[in-house]
Design a protein around this nucleic acid. Structure first.
Length: 706
DNA sequence: GAGTTTGAAACT
DNA sequence: CAGTTTCAAACTC
């Protein structure tokens, strides 16, 4: 981990390198969920002990709160506010202390136990209390300031987990900018700022590069201002509906806001803006996803990481399912991404299929990171796949356009299910049905929230992961291997696998194909021809044969080219070229790894060892250039285990799952949160980590992480 | 747009 | 757990 991050730092501009290292070296990302809880706890405590503390927490964000608690030094956080505003470098101190906090995190968690079930409400109460407390400020300006800052914090806390890694990676700058933003806001609130200030604040936050949290704060603050002015900011309990505004369709999907907000700052073009770049591409879509009126600010959204729907991220648009995973994770991956990778993360929602390959081809300009090899190597494969997916792509684009026009990401057409079953895409995605839907007798609407929630609970009782994202991305492989080809659809896998019988996994009937991922050992499909990556198995004799033929064909092509003296193609067609994209290659590698480690699922019988033919093919396929990274197998094992994380199965019983839920705050959806929060790196591991906020094993894991 | 196909979800 | 039914999306015409 250290090494990788050190390398990753090199890919960043100097301004953020130190920041990233400072945090990540502490295993920051592994603690993020705990941080979230911890923050709530901490601030609650603070709010109860010191008005000023609770009021000014937002300025220094998490740092100050943690510091106070750890150092046992009660203090007026206003000091921090002012100091930070005056001298941004002060945040460094906070940062250092923050590190200590995180080092202590496991211990604290032990102390805290499993209080997750209450922390949502705690947060709400706390925030309300903060506002009220703020109102008691003697000075009018202080009052406004306090109000606003507490509101900022209201926003900040929720944002923290969702942007966790990204924010934390830039914590130093975030802290600085945050202070600045708050300062602007304060000025604004006192009537001295106005729009200029607001813009100024935005500008500053944008300077942060990846400091999405800052921008969130700024945005939220801006939104809050209206409400604050109206009602002194009292009515912003997290998880509550917007008064009179009803719930937006995606009210279950608070975490989306994080991405959205980040997108506001897409203007900057520095090298650290991967997250923004990638988000920018689908932001327009996202923006339309949430028909939030101006008064429905993000601050009125419930806690982002709470109750967010598992599929919200993945299936904001059905077309975006995988792409969003990857985009987000890519964004978070920023610190370790080579420059060329950034382009890859700028996939549009409609690019998950063939277009995605096209995107790679176009964007993978030769650089010093070895991307060129991948590009050339897979060029023909890309072209082929492009053709294969062209029609689907057109349709997809059409649908995306449709979707964007309609302002909705999902439209169901349910007739009998009343949109309260997983048949309903909206419901399954954690969305309320809205106008674009053509459903009948729909109960999946805010006015039936109780029914919806009850039904959801019922379904989750039956299957705790029913609302979990169907596709699990593992694009961190790309970072591990330094091969951005891993960031293709094939680097993700359908959680449960498909069960296709007739579609050959070539149509969207197939959930794998629909998700833009290859089939895996979890699939029970027959005659799988998934262009994103087929599974291997004795039952797939046909596919196997076809694969072999394809390989032979391309081998012949290569031989032919070589015989003709086209040595320049050596680079384009390296040894043991595969008739598939690098992603597909990696997919197969993964399958191979899984063969040796994973238990063959269900009826699938793998023949990697028993079938001489396949074995031979596989050996050939496994050229040096495609040999898995030493850690690759590990990842695959992790993925394999994590597809339905054992720990989740053990610990995430329905009861447990719902204990994390609050009637009004929807629920905590561990896997989704993970996908949202985690950077690509160690994604799977973090799936477990962040799914279960306080597990001894996790703590151990955190400790084990250098 | 209507009808068919398909496979996941739900049910038994 | 397996088989069946229900359902709605995907697909075809």
């Amino acid at each position: 981990m250290h090494d990788d991050q050190t390398e990753g730092r090199g890919a960043l501009n100097d301004g953020q390198n130190l920041d990233c290292s400072a945090h990540t070296e502490n295993g920051f990302d592994h603690i993020n969920p705990e941080l979230h809880v911890e923050v709530s706890q901490t601030f609650k405590y603070d709010s109860g002990s010191s008005e000023s503390a609770s009021i000014t927490l937002p300025t220094q964000g998490i740092e100050t709160g943690c510091v106070l608690e750890n150092t046992g030094m009660p203090g007026t956080l206003n000091q921090f506010v002012e100091e930070a505003s005056v001298d941004r470098d002060h945040s460094l101190d906070s940062e250092v202390e923050l590190q200590n906090v995180f080092y202590n995190e496991p211990r604290k968690e032990e102390r805290m136990g499993c209080e997750d079930e209450n922390w949502i409400c705690d947060a709400s109460n706390l925030l309300i209390y903060d506002s009220q407390t703020a109102l008691q400020a003697p000075d009018e300006q202080d009052k406004k300031r306090a109000n606003h800052e507490s509101s900022c914090f209201t926003s900040f806390v929720p944002q923290m987990p969702q942007n966790g890694i990204c924010d934390l990676l830039h914590a130093k700058e975030s802290t600085c900018k945050f202070s600045s933003s708050v300062k602007h806001e304060v000025e604004d609130l006192t009537g001295q700022g106005g729009e200029n200030d607001q813009n100024g604040g935005k500008h500053q936050t944008m300077e942060c590069g990846g400091s999405s949290s800052i921008f969130h704060i700024k945005q939220d603050s801006t939104d809050l201002r209206e409400n604050i002015n109206k009602e002194a900011g009292i009515h912003f309990p997290l998880g509550c509906k917007q008064p009179g505004g009803g719930l937006p369709r995606r009210c279950l999907v608070f975490e989306i806001g994080g991405t959205q907000k980040m997108n506001f700052g897409t203007n900057h073009e520095n090298s650290s803006s991967v997250a923004f770049q990638c988000n920018e591409d689908f932001f327009p879509d996202e923006k339309k996803l949430i028909p939030i009126s101006p008064t429905i600010s993000s601050s009125t959204r419930p806690l982002p990481a709470i109750g967010l729907h598992l599929n919200a991220l993945t299936v904001t648009s059905k077309e975006c399912r995988v792409v969003k995973h990857e985009t987000l994770t890519s964004g978070n991956q920023l610190p370790t991404l080579p420059s060329s990778v950034k382009s890859f993360s700028s996939l549009k929602p409609d690019q998950e299929h063939g277009n995605k390959f096209l995107d790679v081809e176009i964007l993978s300009a030769p650089d010093a990171n070895g991307v060129q090899v991948e590009k050339d190597d897979s060029q023909s494969a890309f072209a082929t796949r492009e053709e294969l997916n062209q029609s689907a792509l057109k349709k997809k684009r059409r649908k995306v356009e449709d979707t964007e026009e309609s302002g909705a990401c999902k439209r169901c057409n349910c007739k009998k299910s009343k949109c309260l079953k997983l048949y309903c895409e909206c419901f399954a995605a954690g969305l309320y049905c809205m106008e674009p839907c053509s459903c009948k007798d729909c109960l999946n609407k805010p006015i039936h929230e109780d029914t919806v929630l009850a039904t959801r609970r019922q379904i989750e009782t039956r299957n705790p992961l029913a609302f979990a994202p169907k596709v699990i991305t593992s694009s961190e492989w790309g970072l591990e291997t330094g091969d951005e080809s891993n960031k293709t659809p094939a680097s993700s896998r359908h959680k449960r696998g498909c069960n296709c019988k007739k579609s050959s996994c070539l149509k969207k009937y197939c959930e794998c194909y629909q998700g833009g991922v290859g089939c895996s050992i979890n699939c029970r499909c027959e005659g799988c021809k998934n262009t994103f990556g087929r599974k291997y198995g004795a039952n797939d004799a046909e596919a196997e044969e076809e694969e072999s033929e394809t390989y032979n064909k391309l081998a012949e092509e290569k031989t032919s080219l070589t015989d003709r003296g086209q040595d320049d193609n050596e680079d384009k067609y390296p040894e043991n070229i595969l008739p598939e994209t690098p992603s597909l290659q990696l997919c197969r590698q993964s399958v191979q790894v899984l063969f040796s480690k994973a238990k063959p699922p269900q009826s699938l019988v793998f023949s990697n060892e028993s079938s001489p033919k396949l074995s031979s093919t596989s050996q050939t396929l496994e050229s040096d250039s495609f040999r898995p990274h030493p850690r690759f197998g590990k990842h695959f094992q992790l993925i394999s285990d994590g597809e339905t994380p054992e720990i989740l199965r053990e610990k995430c019983s329905p009861i447990k799952t719902f204990k994390l839920a609050s009637p009004n705050c929807k629920r905590v959806s561990p896997p989704h949160a993970e996908l949202k929060l985690t950077p690509n790196r160690k994604l799977t591991r973090k799936l477990v980590l962040q799914s279960i906020p306080s597990l001894p094993r996790l703590e151990k894991n955190c400790n084990d992480t250098p």
